[in-house]
Structures are given as structure tokens and as C-alpha cells.
């Protein structure tokens, strides 16, 4: 059930190249939500007796069950995120409404998560809740412009340690041979490579593919998967306008 809540900005982490992680603290307990769902964030004050102000959708990076804590990531791309960069400040107040969306990983199939940039935030709650003995394989392929912009590497490392059938592959366009994440995982140079993932799965044609990232990446990766003969129903994209 959706709710509108005022939140205090608890922290803002700048990762460089205008990429940020924002932690919020809601004034009241959050409604339950599923990993992969999104929220709307409004910068302007909201009077609950009136209309909801201008807002933008963001994946909820934190998992449900943290009572009042919320986390989201953004990369400055347009008017709204430029305002966020200028106006968000620790201690300030924003409004959110949540949860929304069907980009939820369900079913018993093997799962491939394809994340570009801040698109990783659509998968982090799922990774946080991944059970240690899940029967399905989960492969995460995660690409960013630079190695420094690969977020949540600590969460990914912890997931790899506790979830038996989880694997992660990292890509960075500007990576040099031998580059590693801060947690020591190797980073391949170049754009996210679907073929590399394909080789990691025993039955790649039977897996479900979830793609989250910038529009161009969604389009390119979807097209690549379709060209490999995957049915449209097996490809799920977290697309917003």
C-alpha cells in the first residue's frame, strides 16, 4: 500500500562524476515493499491536503524491513537530478511516496542481473535478501563508466560470500587490465558484456534476465539478448521515461 512520507536527509555520498548515494530517514515507519520497487522523491514542500508536487522515480536501494531508513542512488542527468545535486543537504527535508513498480524478481528460474551505473540500485535490496541456499543461480553483471563508480561492491562481496550460487562480474569502460574493485574483485575493461554472463550459466536460455540502467544501455542489452534468441518474456527491463 502506497504512502507519502516526509524524510530527513541523513547523508549524501558523492562518488565522483556527479554520482551520489542518498540516505533518508522517514518520519514514520515505511510501508513494506519488495526488492526492485521504486519510490517517487519530491524536493518541493508537500502539503498533504493538496496535490503531490513534481517528483521523479528512483529505485529503492535499501531493503524493506529497515523501519524508517531508505537509500537511493542517482546520477545527474537532467533537470530534476540537477536540482537534487544543488538542493539536497544533510538535515533537509524531502517527501517520498512509495512503493511502486513490478520490477520484482520472482520465480524459480536462474536469474541474470544486468546493471549499468546507478541501475545497480534496483538489485541491491534483492542481493541483501538473497538466501544463502537459494536453489537458483544468480549472476550479476555490473558495468559503470569508471571503476570508482561501481557502487555497493561491499554488499556484492558479502552476497558472494554467503550465497552459494551467486556470482558477480564487474565491467568499467575506463578500466585498465588488472584493475580490481575496492574489495578485490577483478574488473573487466569495456562495456558490460552479455556473452561473459552467458558462459557462467549451465542453461542460459532458461534464465530470467533483469536489466537496470540508463536507457541506451537497456536498449542495447535487450537487443543483444533478443538477438541471442531469448524470448521477450524472459527479458525484464526497469525502464522509466
Amino acid at each position: 500500500m502506497t504512502r507519502k512520507l516526509a524524510c530527513r536527509v541523513d547523508s549524501i555520498a558523492a562518488h565522483g562524476e556527479r554520482v551520489y548515494t542518498v540516505r533518508l530517514r522517514a518520519e514514520r515507519p515505511l510501508p513494506s515493499f519488495r526488492a526492485g520497487q521504486f519510490l517517487h522523491l519530491a524536493l518541493d514542500p508537500y502539503d498533504p491536503s493538496g496535490f503531490w508536487p513534481d517528483s521523479r522515480a528512483f529505485s529503492i536501494a535499501s531493503a524493506s524491513g529497515h523501519d524508517t531508513a531508505l537509500e537511493l542512488c542517482y546520477s545527474v542527468k537532467g533537470r530534476f537530478t540537477s536540482r537534487m545535486e544543488r538542493e539536497l543537504a544533510v538535515g533537509g527535508t524531502v517527501w517520498v511516496k512509495l512503493p511502486y513498480g513490478d520490477f520484482v524478481i520472482e520465480g524459480q528460474d536462474d536469474v541474470v542481473l544486468l546493471a549499468g551505473g546507478t541501475g545497480i540500485s534496483a538489485f541491491t535490496a534483492y542481493l541483501e535478501q538473497l538466501p544463502p541456499h537459494a536453489s537458483s543461480s544468480v549472476v550479476l553483471a555490473y558495468g559503470a563508466r569508471a571503476a570508482s563508480l561501481l557502487l555497493y561492491t561491499d554488499l556484492i562481496r558479502r552476497t558472494a560470500l554467503h550465497a552459494r550460487r551467486f556470482q558477480a562480474l564487474f565491467f568499467a569502460e575506463s578500466a585498465e587490465p588488472g584493475d580490481r574493485t575496492s574489495d578485490g574483485a577483478p574488473i573487466e575493461s569495456g562495456r558490460l558484456n552479455v556473452n561473459a554472463v552467458w558462459q557462467r550459466l549451465p542453461r542460459p536460455r532458461e534464465a530470467a534476465y533483469y536489466i537496470s540502467g540508463p536507457p541506451a544501455m537497456l536498449e542495447a542489452v535487450s537487443a543483444e539478448l533478443r538477438a541471442m534468441g531469448l524470448a521477450a518474456e524472459a527479458i525484464h527491463t526497469d525502464a522509466w521515461e
Partner: peptide, 9 residues
């Protein structure tokens, strides 16, 4: 009174 909540209107 709301628009484009799904972000894919």
C-alpha cells in the same frame, strides 16, 4: 490528481 507515477506513461 497525480501523473506518471509509473514513470512509463
Amino acid at each position: 490528481g497525480e501523473n506518471n507515477t509509473c514513470g512509463t506513461r
